[in-house]
């Protein structure tokens, strides 16, 4: 279920690294836990963050999730379509429901992250 070319955080985000940048999203598990997403708040293009900074929020009818960046760097692009139609996050969290593209300034940030296999195990343990 979890794409093998992505890396995963304990906060249930994924990042797809493409050269010097990465595309960030939330996982299938996260969207399922949140339920129907109604608002997505994302940072501005050009803003710079350190890894583990809070960079946005995702609100469902009954829950609020804070979004943290696993890597330091500048925001390069955000998924504008998601702002108008947040339900895409529920329908397709791993592809069309991507949140933003961020520069990966320091590749060492990625070493903390989990592989798809590790994340699957992490979620299995969490959702028993």
């Amino acid at each position: 279920m979890y794409p093998s070319e992505y890396l995963y955080t304990k906060e249930h985000e994924w990042i797809r690294v493409e050269g010097d940048s990465g595309v960030l999203g939330i996982t299938q598990f996260a969207q399922h836990e949140l339920g129907d997403v109604v608002f997505v708040e994302l940072p501005e293009v050009g803003q710079k963050f350190e890894s583990h900074d809070e960079i946005g929020t995702i609100e469902s009818v009954k829950a609020v999730a804070e979004l943290y960046t696993p890597v330091s760097g500048e925001i390069l692009e955000i998924n504008e379509a998601l702002i108008d139609d947040p339900a895409v996050l529920n329908d397709d969290p791993h592809t069309d429901g991507w949140l933003l593209r961020i520069q990966v300034a320091n590749k060492e940030d990625l070493q903390e992250l989990m592989s798809a296999e590790q994340y699957t195990q992490y979620v299995d343990e969490a959702s028993d």
């Binding site: 304990k10 906060e11 249930h12 996260a30 836990e33 009954k62 609020v64 999730a65």
Partner: peptide, 13 residues
């Protein structure tokens, strides 16, 4: 990543 869930607790972390 979930911080607040109201009025039901559904801890994600």
């Amino acid at each position: 990543m979930l911080r607040i869930v109201i009025p039901f607790r559904l801890n994600l972390a």
